[in-house]
Design a protein around this nucleic acid. Structure first.
Lengths: 243, 243
DNA sequence: CGACCACTTGAGCCCTGTCAAATAGCGTGG
DNA sequence: CCACGCTATTTGACAGGGCTCAAGTGGTCG
């Protein structure tokens, strides 16, 4: 197999045919249904680069100028908000197919850190080009609006979780949510391995890592899940639902 | 003073000159800077009605079809998310000048309830018309995007609060935030009265009403605020900040 | 093989929820 | 204008869930 052009790739941002939306594996998750071939082509035209982000590295940090939004092509990220006193909270985990970076639109600077929790790859979507395209293609405009609105709804559901649920319920809800999202991406919803640490899960769920661990052990004892470190098997989803 | 046309007003939705953006008192809060008179006119054209919502009534409820977004002209609202088991959480308080309803964009149905916490008045902005306008006027498009993004950022800050702060810190942050927003609207930042009950504050902050009350009393003892029921006077904002 | 990190588990304590009772405030109807 | 009844708020006593601190285990990478 010829590997032409590979020698010209930069380490951080490359143009290549695989970065085309029209042929992307995550298309079904990223894009609206029923986009015409022409519109797809126009999308392809503005998404001309991707970027590799290694585990632990930041895609962007709080305060960085906002230029682009991103779509996770492979891997996963966490988004983290910080208080001046150093307190921080994970506000989301973003899997392949998820959008990232829309927090920067409001002020022109990012309000979160986005950190890769495994080696990952993102599409870079220059936002001013996307805005132009939105002015021309109604389907894309609506999709962008839906993405932003989904983020609003997602966060408010998380607030419900943080504000009203016990530690046990939060961990159960976390596992079920992850399970659902993995299934939507074609993975098993019953068996997967966590990319995030107990501490990151705890930060996301508003509790300490020890508490997360205890809840996993509890579910284990009760036969709801089989958790061996990061390897998770959900044995009784209905039981988790009822917690 | 003549009161022509008043007799023709409907109780729930009326057209009247005062509903024009170009002459609205909340213009500075609602609208982007530097909109041309022509663009303002086009906005006026799509916002043709307002609606009165009495205290305790819903502007919209979870599951309602999403047609329009709203701008609070006068009064205030809370938004509430609900879990099937009846558990609910206040996710925001919306004052005059704030936008409302963008949660409905993602699915076409609202995901929250929006309830008036005092007699209120909103502009009704049909969303499909706003989207059309966004395709034509870049300044308005950007403003809509910023509004949605702000909501995302607002919620993530609230998640930080729910996930990492003590009850005392949450109540302090709540008072300071409200104070800031009131100042931005031309009211005193030091003295105001709460439109929401202790229970609503508690729901917003993820705690019980008794805890809210205790924190108010504590701040009172420490000379940070003077709280007599809903009447609040902030005596030492720096002290609150440091809590 | 060793160092390091993530994870698990235990013991004790504190913050906040729960339950209960008293007080204050507010709107309504006489 | 006042009395009444309701709701909102305050305050206290107590219990429990989750945090803190600590020790020990397991897994991974150099």
């Amino acid at each position: 197999m010829p590997r032409a052009l590979n020698g010209t790739s930069s380490a951080t941002a490359v143009n290549r045919p695989t970065s085309r939306c029209s042929s992307c594996a995550m298309r079904a998750v990223c894009l609206p249904q029923g986009l015409s071939p022409l519109d797809l082509q126009r999308l392809d035209a503005i998404i001309c680069s991707t970027r590799m982000v290694r585990q632990g590295e930041a895609l962007y940090r709080t305060g960085d100028a906002f230029q682009s939004m991103y779509a996770v092509r492979a891997g996963s990220f966490k988004t983290v908000v910080m208080h001046r006193d150093g307190r921080e909270q994970v506000t989301g985990f973003h899997l392949a197919g998820d959008a990232l970076g829309l927090d920067g639109v409001s002020t022109g600077h990012h309000s979160f850190d986005a950190i890769a929790i495994e080696d990952s790859n993102v599409c870079i979507i220059p936002f001013h080009l996307l805005e132009s395209l939105c002015r021309e293609v109604k389907g894309i405009q609506q999709h962008v609006h839906r993405m932003m609105s989904s983020e609003i709804v997602r966060e408010s559901v998380l607030m419900l979780l943080l504000g009203t649920m016990s530690a046990e319920q939060r961990v159960a809800a976390f596992l079920l949510n992850l399970s659902t999202r993995l299934r939507a991406r074609g993975y098993s919803s019953a068996e997967f391995n966590l990319r995030m640490t107990r501490e990151e899960i705890g930060s996301y769920l508003g509790m300490k890592l020890e508490t997360v661990s205890r809840m996993f052990s509890k579910f284990q004892r009760e036969g709801l899940v089989d958790a061996r470190g990061k390897q998770i098997r959900i044995l009784n989803p209905d039981g988790l639902e009822r917690v």
